[in-house]
Design a protein around this nucleic acid. Structure first.
Lengths: 235, 235, 235, 235
DNA sequence: GATGAATGAGAATTCATTCAT
DNA sequence: GATGAATGAATTCTCATTCAT
């Protein structure tokens, strides 16, 4: 089970990816011509996407070999190119799904005041972000680490993160916290913290139990960005 | 000029690298046997190290080609292998220098209270960290992004970051801030924030002027981790 | 036609090599993982092995370039590494086959008395040895000239030659020939003679017709090692 | 001490090599311009030649790196090319000396009858051959293993071996032994045996004490090629 | 006479992508 | 729809030879 109790986000084989495909319509004979996939095809596609996520997680996008993915998916090279035009195309498919998850997440961030209710809302959001990262981490890493060559894919990431950043900026403004240096830098810092903390968790660098670390993260962010008062140990 | 006014850290061609090399003494015919380099050799070595930092910064460690480095250093392929066994060996050389810079930095972090003096000390440290990152960023990234294959090199990074983390943990403890979820997660979060924020700055993702963003970072960290009181806009 | 009339030994693509390969099972992404080869794959593998034997014969193992082999097999560089990890791995494959041929040969050496029957048996063995050498010469040379880096491969050669040497030693003992300096040196001498004579024949250094030189070799060995009486020209 | 008590053959820095040099007279500025070497120069030259022999012995001519030689001689690459035009030129220098030793040896082979006196003479020759091989083995190997590219150098080897072979053929003829298959093949076999046995001894493949193995070799050759009667154990 | 440094052509190896069955 | 096999361009690495001091 995840920290928040929400069900883990799924790889949307159906809906979201089809859109990535529609670009390709018309280019005859090229691979990745998803058209109407039957049951078997959909299963293979999912196996490939899942395998890619696994391999990317282990090795990172750049270092991942098509061969690794194919082997992990128990299929062949030839099959891979039946579903994707190339490695980047595969990343794109995952990116589309990931971006839509993140955007949805952004839309769902409620007001975050400096009080307990605000903290609860913040905690909810952070928990969902961690969950999403647990699944799509490799894609997000690829974005953050500038491993994406394709403009289109990169754009997707920027857009998704901007969506979240903008919404958080709005919530900060509502909380009326004074931030020297301006909002932009603050948002940058917050997103940086979010992403790397999540990576730290996903990679095992940051240990401690699920809810424990979520508490820590919540506390820090609440104080640092949303004006929550600090509790000091009574010396 | 740098944010802090300190002079930028230098690549320590001399002392620190020689030690990394001494392992190789005796191994026959292997390159990278620094031996006693004359003036010309030292110059070439430095050209290569500097070029590597440039190329790594532009392309990332993994994507960087030996050819890029060699071209950037205006020397030949053969020469490269006269100084390093391979790309990893070069990273090692840089890592040794970087680690010593970071360790030195750690030792120099004074008490960070929640008051103005604490803020000043924190700002000084963060400024120096940003400067170091500006120079050795690629190496630090390689560490943080798990791109390092070599155990030895990886160990160096862990050690250096632990040194900083431990010192900051000490300073947090002194500030008596109560952190639910414990110190470990908090330190993890702080280091994550530091590293990624620095990367954001170095890569241009986080814009705003030098001192402006340093202020923002200082404020956030001071509040989030060291109990600085929050100023709220008088609505 | 060969000296003995036996059909030339074949490169055993199937059975023998597969075993050498099984070590690699599980090691990720490594080439030379023969898996289950289909007809086409088996053909290519054999083409490569045959080509290697040709090229090694012409240039010697060390001087042979992968490129030569690939060109001689009318295939591509990439393909080579689909079947072998490197040149050494290819040698290993050949060595396995060669060793089994030689071992089989050893088991088949009958008693060699000083009489005509003994001579016939000796001649039969020598003829088969020459045939095997004609085919696997390059591999045997690599063994004898200490060109093999890999322990495993070297071991194979030692074992095979020991098998032959031991059997011949047994036959000498049966012939009750007195050899000052002991058996070991004698066997060494005999194997040395066998190998180099075969090389001389294969390389054209030692000319004369097939059966003629086989006669010479037989005579010398029969006299030198198995106590055959010497015929002297009636001056 | 050597098996025969003769003093070990020396690398004739002075006399023999100068002749190899005279060819180069006239080619201005080229390396290997020995001219008149002073004491220091002669010492360096000898160091290089000795080192070469050592390295060739360990690795074989082909696999030997100029770097190995230079390091073993405790000198520099630059210096190497002050004395030799290239690696082959160095081999040539050694080959000249070796060839003259062998030729001298050939001239000195007395009659080899099937009796005890013949055996003594044969033993003396074989001992000297083994000694020469102990020193010049690598050069002889290079000849026998077809590692020599240069025609001129190769010619030297053929000539030297022909000289020995011819003389031995003469001695065989004198001994009136009947050899089916003709003299050529017999001589080939004898030379093959000599060379490989020597290599086996030098490389440690054939163990047993110095004089012991010399006895064995002598016995075998005496019987196999010179008509010595065979002693059989009284069963 | 000697040496450290540099060079670049050649060889090995990897891997995304295409082909044929 | 699937797969084993093939490809070759891109990359790393080696080493004999030359250069500059």
């Amino acid at each position: 089970m995840t920290a928040t109790g929400d069900r883990a986000p799924e790889v949307g084989v159906g809906a979201s990816y089809k859109s990535a495909t529609e670009r390709d319509v018309g280019s005859v004979g090229l691979p990745a011509q998803q058209r109407e996939l039957r049951a078997q095809g959909r299963r293979t596609l999912r196996r490939l996407l899942d395998a890619a996520l696994r391999v990317f997680a282990r090795r990172g996008y750049h270092a991942a070999r098509v061969d690794d993915i194919v082997r992990s998916a128990r299929t062949s090279h030839g099959t891979f190119y039946l579903y994707f035009a190339n490695k980047e195309d595969l990343l794109r498919a995952l990116a589309v799904d990931c971006a839509s998850q993140l955007t949805e997440l952004a839309d769902d961030i409620g007001p975050i005041g400096s009080d307990a209710a605000g903290r609860a809302e913040l905690r909810r959001f952070l928990g969902r972000f961690l969950d999403t990262y647990r699944h799509y981490g490799p894609v997000i890493r690829a974005w953050m680490e500038d491993q994406v060559g394709d403009r289109h894919v990169d754009r997707l990431g920027v857009k998704a993160f901007t969506a979240i950043g903008d919404r958080l900026a709005l919530r900060m403004r509502e909380a009326s916290v004074r931030l020297p240096g301006g909002e932009a830098a603050a948002v940058g810092a917050l997103m940086a913290l979010l992403e790397r903390f999540s990576y730290g968790v996903a990679s095992g660098r940051i240990s401690a139990g699920d809810s424990t670390r979520l508490d820590t993260l919540t506390t820090i962010v609440h104080r640092g960005f949303f004006g929550a008062p600090v509790e000091v140990d009574p010396a």
